[in-house]
Design a binder for these strands. Structure first.
Length: 113
DNA sequence: GCTTTGACTGGAA
DNA sequence: GTTCCAGCCAAAG
């Protein structure tokens, strides 16, 4: 099966790939995805890619600090999907404190400091 | 090739 | 604690 790749540019392709790396039950931020894709200053484009490219877990993508930038209904849809994956919420925001995915970095525990 | 826009970010009110 | 303003960067028209 071929994965849809409407990415005409490496930016879209990189962001698309980065989002696919997010495991289930985990979330990430636009800035983190953009940075993982190689464009740390292009967080805005991450959101644009999510709309252009379908098949991506857009519900796993949040704004900085877990703040959602979307309209109400989309936020509810997103929240429902995340809860289905086991992601907990902290009031109106996602508990990124423990559910933020790290690209390339092994989420190792602070054994020593 | 220039202009407009955008599912963002971070800081200040 | 949340909401508003201004800045950044690349893609689309």
């Amino acid at each position: 099966m071929k994965l849809e790749r409407p990415a005409k540019t490496p930016l879209v392709n990189a962001i698309c790939d980065a989002i696919r790396k997010i495991p289930r039950g985990r979330v990430s931020t636009y800035g983190a995805i953009a940075a993982a894709a190689g464009y740390p200053r292009c967080a805005r484009h991450v959101g644009r890619v999510l709309q252009q490219v379908d098949g991506l877990p857009w519900h796993r993508v949040l704004g900085s600090g877990g703040r959602t930038a979307m309209p109400g209904e989309f936020a509810l849809e997103q929240r429902f999907l995340l809860e289905s994956e086991g992601v907990r919420f902290r009031g109106k925001r996602v508990d990124m404190r423990n559910f933020e995915h790290r690209f390339g970095k092994t989420s190792r525990k602070p054994s020593a400091s």
